[in-house]
């Protein structure tokens, strides 16, 4: 039998035609440039922004208690690395624990919602209410209930970050095509087996999308919890430094918080690539217009 599809799809360099070869070379260069762009362009934008910031502070002689220059922030970070690092540990712990709790509870709630109509009707309004209540306003109450330790901060991080995880995962679990579930039933799959082998893997891209939103929110939650009342953590540090108008120190702490958020995001994306390469590689494929250039020339 024929393999016509197989050969038509693959790109084979045509040795007889030097023109085709040139195009392939050109496309490799373009591909390298496109890859590089992903790194270079954002870095250039950030460098430009920081340069502008420095220039504005220098040229207009902005007072350091109004806006510290980037160089002042960097020196604050270096000179006071000790306390910064010390306060980073509890904040990081709160973020990680709050986020992990949100990931577990969020996924579980999503599963409950999609498996039972009754549970859905009971849980959904509660979930929506939990989001319409401003969590920031609840933070002081959690301090009253759970004291000054880490627990209330973990809870704020959890409450603020679990919602996108629930909603995204539930959407993913629901998005299995009807034909696929029919087919699975006809193959004799039990409900549990279909869930394990079809529905859950199918929802993973959505789950990861929820996790990425969740980790950013967990950082906010932990800091808000610390604002509400604490004696350690970067949020506490920011409040104290702001009280002294030590803007450089505040910004150094903010930069560290942002770095923690970015690291969390990158880690999740890495995990996503390992867990669902079938999804991430397809997503990357859509950014490759130069591949069509070669194949068009070839057909």
């Amino acid at each position: 039998m024929s393999k016509s599809d197989a050969s038509a799809d693959s790109i084979q360099p045509d040795n007889d035609s030097s023109y085709t070869f040139e195009i392939i070379q050109l496309s490799l260069l373009r591909r390298a440039w496109n890859r590089g762009q992903i790194v270079i362009l954002p870095l250039a934008a950030i460098a430009f922004f920081i340069g502008l910031w420095q220039a504005v502070v220098d040229i207009f002689d902005v007072k350091p208690f109004i806006l510290a220059s980037p160089s002042a922030v960097i020196s604050a970070m270096i000179n006071r690395w000790g306390p910064l690092a010390e306060h980073m540990v509890p904040t990081a712990t709160e973020i990680i624990l709050g986020f992990l709790l949100a990931a577990c509870v969020g996924t579980l709630l999503a599963v409950l919602i999609v498996t039972s109509r009754v549970l859905e009707q009971m849980l959904y309004p509660l979930l929506v209410i939990s989001q319409t209540v401003p969590q920031i306003a609840v933070a002081p109450l959690l301090i009253v209930w759970f004291g000054f330790g880490m627990l209330p901060k973990i809870l704020v991080a959890f409450v603020i970050s679990f919602f996108p995880i629930v909603v995204n995962t539930a959407t993913g679990l629901r998005s299995v095509p009807q034909e696929l579930s029919d087919l699975a039933v006809s193959m004799g799959g039990s409900k549990l087996a279909i869930f394990r082998r079809v529905r859950f893997p199918h929802a993973l891209p959505h789950l990861f999308a929820g996790l990425k939103v969740g980790i950013a929110l967990a950082v906010i939650g932990a800091v808000v919890g610390e604002f509400a009342g604490s004696d350690k953590g970067l949020g506490y540090l920011i409040r104290r430094a702001a009280g002294r108008a030590d803007v450089a120190y505040v910004l150094a702490a903010v930069a560290l918080l942002s770095a923690m958020g970015i690291i969390g995001f990158v880690l999740i994306e890495l995990l996503e690539r390992i867990t669902i390469p079938w999804h991430t590689s397809r997503r990357r494929q859509t950014h490759r217009p130069e591949a069509t250039l070669v194949s068009v020339r070839h057909n």
Partner: peptide, 17 residues
């Protein structure tokens, strides 16, 4: 659901993973 049948739909609905 019938045990001794095979079904092919218009969409291949293969599992991507």
């Amino acid at each position: 659901p019938q045990p001794d049948i095979g079904i092919v739909f218009q969409q291949d609905v293969l599992l991507d993973w």
